[in-house]
C-alpha cells in the first residue's frame, strides 16, 4: 500500500486523508473519517447500500476512489439526516414504519433526498425510478415508496 494525501470535502468540511489511491471511498468514509452510517453491501456496485451524494447526485461509494471525488462536495447520511429534507424523510420513514432490518435505508434516503431536491413533486413512477437500483431483501418496498411520496406531497402542499 502506498499512502497518498487527498483533501476531500465531506459534509461541508475539508478532510485530509492519507490512503492508498486504490482504496474505495466507502472505506475512507467509514474508517478514516469514522462516518459509519454509509453501509457496506456488495462492494461491487450492485446493491446501492453504499450510496451517498457527490455534488448532490447519488453515487455508489464502493465504486469511487478518493482521486475521483477530490474537489467535489460529498454528503453522507450523517449530514443528510440533519437537513430539513433529511429530517422530513426520516420522520416519514418512521411514521410509515418503512423498513424491517433497516440496512438498505441509509442509501435510499440519500437517493430520495437527491430526487426531491431536483424534482420537488415527483410522481410515484419517478420515485420508483430514482430508487430502483437499491436492493431491499426485507420487502419493505411499498412502505419506502409511500414514505417518500408523503414527503413529496407535504412539500407540494407547502408550496
Amino acid at each position: 500500500m502506498q499512502a497518498k494525501h487527498f483533501v476531500l470535502s465531506i459534509n461541508g468540511k475539508q478532510c485530509s486523508v492519507a490512503v492508498d489511491p486504490g482504496t474505495a471511498l466507502l472505506y475512507i468514509i467509514r474508517n478514516d473519517l469514522d462516518l459509519k452510517g454509509t453501509r457496506i453491501g456488495c462492494g461491487e456496485g450492485n446493491c446501492f447500500s453504499c450510496t451517498l451524494l457527490v455534488e448532490g447526485r447519488p453515487q455508489q461509494s464502493c465504486s469511487l476512489t478518493a482521486a475521483a471525488v477530490e474537489g467535489k462536495s460529498i454528503e453522507t447520511i450523517e449530514a443528510i439526516r440533519d437537513t430539513e429534507l433529511g429530517q422530513a424523510l426520516i420522520a416519514s420513514f418512521i411514521t410509515e414504519q418503512a423498513g424491517q432490518c433497516g440496512y438498505c435505508l441509509a442509501g435510499i434516503l440519500a437517493s430520495a433526498k437527491a430526487l426531491l431536491e431536483r424534482q420537488p413533486s415527483p410522481s410515484r413512477n419517478q420515485i420508483v425510478a430514482a430508487i430502483d437500483g437499491h436492493l431491499c431483501r426485507c420487502g419493505a418496498h411499498n412502505r419506502i415508496i409511500r414514505a417518500i411520496e408523503k414527503v413529496a406531497f407535504g412539500r407540494r402542499m407547502a408550496g
Binding site: G37, I80, R81, F93, I94, C101, G102, Y103, L105, L109
Partner: peptide, 8 residues
C-alpha cells in the same frame, strides 16, 4: 428503527 435509518 431510528437507529438503523441514519446512524451506526
Amino acid at each position: 428503527l431510528l437507529s438503523k435509518v441514519a446512524s451506526a
